[in-house]
């Protein structure tokens, strides 16, 4: 995925690594080994059982007549999508894709300078890279739906809040992936640019960008794929797009219409995923 850095010329005459101090394994060592495996399994089972109890997992309820009846009824509706509904949700579907496009593009553009500030081979000063990374990690810890909920509270219900949420989400994802790609570029051209008397910005324009650009575009496309899926559920918190309609139809138990929305979303996501994967393969 990332370009391999050219290894620096190894220092010749370096002393061989000191011999390992670890004693040779004895025949007895198989005993503790087996105990370790047993203990790992035991711990694993304990964790599953404890978690199961905490969430009230109930196999009897899972396969009860009531549950099965519900599954049957809903499935019965879901397999008969209401096609006449398609026309009415098409504008919302388009809005979903528009939210994803706007969010991805704005977020990705904002990600570029921050990615450059985070990469140690471009910014050797820790006083810059560490704060930049802290900001980036903070943005990345907040889930997109939480961003959406906050922006809905601030800017009101609608697509704008959803787009802003995706701007932040895309910014975090693209900046992180891009700065890692920048750190993996071939340092040779950077050295050559320094030697020819280039300043920092010229070094970035002629040494870093041409090497990192294909990776950046690939990450933007990937983020767009993720964003289309994310935009489809933003409506659940009132941040525009198809999610609002899905929420309404599910609440009014119109599973036939919900099915139409789900299928239409599936088609859109599949088409975008396919196109994006094709483009990314062409890029790299």
């Amino acid at each position: 995925m990332t370009p391999a850095p050219t290894p620096e010329t190894a220092e010749v005459g370096a002393p061989p690594p000191p011999p390992s101090k670890k004693p040779a394994p004895t025949i007895d060592s198989k005993g503790p080994q087996r105990f370790k495996a047993l203990f790992t399994w035991l711990a694993f089972i304990v964790v599953i059982v404890v978690c199961g109890i905490r969430v009230d997992a109930d196999f009897v309820q899972l396969f009860s007549k009531n549950s099965m009846d519900n599954v049957g009824r809903i499935m019965n509706d879901l397999i008969r999508p209401d096609w006449s509904y398609t026309g009415r949700i098409l504008p919302a579907m388009i809005e979903t894709v528009q939210i994803a496009i706007a969010g991805t593009v704005i977020g990705s553009v904002l990600a570029v300078p921050v990615a450059l500030l985070c990469a140690v081979n471009v910014m050797p000063k820790k006083i810059v890279t560490i704060p930049a990374r802290i900001v980036l990690n903070l943005v990345r810890t907040i889930p997109d739906l939480l961003f959406a909920a906050v922006f809905v509270a601030v800017f009101g219900i609608g697509a704008f809040a959803g787009m802003l949420a995706l701007v932040f989400f895309s910014f975090g994802l693209v900046a992180k992936l891009t700065y890692e790609a920048i750190e993996a570029i071939d340092p040779g051209p950077l050295e050559a640019m320094t030697a020819s008397g280039a300043n920092k910005i010229q070094l970035i324009v002629f040494g870093v960008i041409p090497q990192a650009l294909p990776y950046f575009f690939s990450y933007v496309l990937y983020t767009f794929e993720v964003n289309v899926r994310a935009a489809a559920v933003l409506g659940f918190v009132g941040a525009g797009g198809i999610g609002l309609h899905l929420d309404q139809q599910l609440n009014s138990l119109r599973y036939d219409r919900a099915s139409t929305i789900i299928l239409l979303t599936l088609v859109i996501v599949l088409v975008i995923d396919y196109a994006s994967t094709y483009l990314r393969r062409k890029l790299l």
């Binding site: 010329t9 071939d186 040779g188 050295e191 050559a192 020819s196 040494g207 041409p210």
Partner: peptide
Amino acid sequence: GMIFQSFNLVKR
């Protein structure tokens, strides 16, 4: 001007 063992060109 400087010339390097590994050329140090931007390959793309």
